[in-house]
Design a protein around this nucleic acid. Structure first.
Lengths: 204, 204
DNA sequence: ATTTGTGAACAGTTTCACAGCG
DNA sequence: CGCTGTGAAACTGTTCACAAAT
């Protein structure tokens, strides 16, 4: 067997985040159950798909497990290039984030259709007018985009991003994007997240 | 039948977002398939769980369907109160967001452990030192929290939020939170989202 | 002794295919 | 007559329970 289902992949990504803050040397499926709420059986099944085979009578070695998740799920590739499109309030907050330091993701470009912003804002990487989107993404080989534009622009920018081969979009807008199956979308808008929480709490 | 699965709820929330930007009067399951990538059969099954029963030979009436999703999934309740904890770069961006205007969510409080921030920052709702978290959440009846604090504080603040009965947390930190099953978490950190995209793109 | 790894049973979700309805 | 709604089948994911490993 060597086929990791989508739900298992999502859990493994979160497990890797959990392990990154873990101070113990070893961790058992039981401990992971307590921390995450997933059953110990599902945890063991997920991890077995990684073909780690070093879990023993004292549980999984934390660092080894973490490294195994990272390599299997392509979380350890060197320098995956990202860009941010839309430099309004949200985009500016992301510009200055330190969250990607020490990660494999590197922000290499920002875009906004308002040239005033691209000229005035300060950042560690170049800011361009949105007209240069295709050129910069192709020449830099950017694989991931963070979408933080106004609602009205969201779908058209998303389509342009897909067109130039971006593999994934982190969608900070509350619009549902239509994209080809070659591009993946993660919806992280505040409104969508709140509505998802409400829906989960609705007992039906 | 009257049991909506978690994946179906997630899809319905996104479908509601799609409908909110839809200009047509009617929409068919086939059209929804083209926009979302979900199969027409799964769309019909999801919608059938709502017991709308007004789909006809020209598809579902958009406004009626949208309202039905909203009422079934508790998206139409009046004024669900939210607060934001952590007023750093990300928190400040959320402070000023207009995304929740015209929604049922109302931001009513902000918290930060740095009193300088709570005194200096401008906002349409009161900002408090984090020591007042429990008091304000309980007295205001706040149900949802947006977590945008530093990594080190994330788990302890999350536990305090659960303790005072918050039903859902939108987690902007890249930490995996351990919470009781009475509180739901949506992880929307940039790093987690990027890693989830990479994992989906890894062919295993 | 404790914990993993995994066949086999089970539960849940999606797809198929078509009857029934507007 | 096109489109929904839904049994039944197919598939996917989860849980159980225990043999294997250290």
């Amino acid at each position: 067997m060597r086929q990791i289902s989508a739900p298992a992949k999502r859990r493994l990504v979160l497990l890797e985040r959990l392990l990154s803050n873990c101070t113990e040397q070893h961790i058992t499926s039981q401990k992971i159950q307590e921390a995450t709420g997933w059953s110990a059986a599902v945890v063991r099944r997920d991890i077995s798909l990684l073909e780690l085979h070093s879990g023993a009578s004292n549980g999984y070695p934390v660092e080894e497990l973490r490294e195994c998740i990272r390599s299997t799920l392509n979380l350890s590739l060197q320098e995956q290039k990202c860009c941010i499109v839309g430099l309004g309030r949200m985009g500016q907050a992301i510009l200055g984030t330190t969250e990607l330091e020490n990660s494999n993701y590197k922000m290499v470009a920002g875009f906004d259709s308002n040239v005033n912003r691209t000229e005035v804002l300060k950042s560690n990487f170049p800011l361009h007018p949105t007209t240069r989107l295709e050129y910069v993404i192709r020449s830099e080989g950017i694989e991931y985009a963070i979408l933080a534009v106004e609602k009205q622009e969201a779908q058209s920018i998303a389509s342009r991003l897909c067109e130039c081969g971006v593999k994934g979009i982190v969608n900070y807008t509350s619009c549902m994007l239509t994209v080809p199956s070659t591009t993946k979308v993660e919806n992280v808008s505040l409104l969508t997240a709140l509505e998802t929480l409400s829906a989960q709490n609705a007992e039906i």
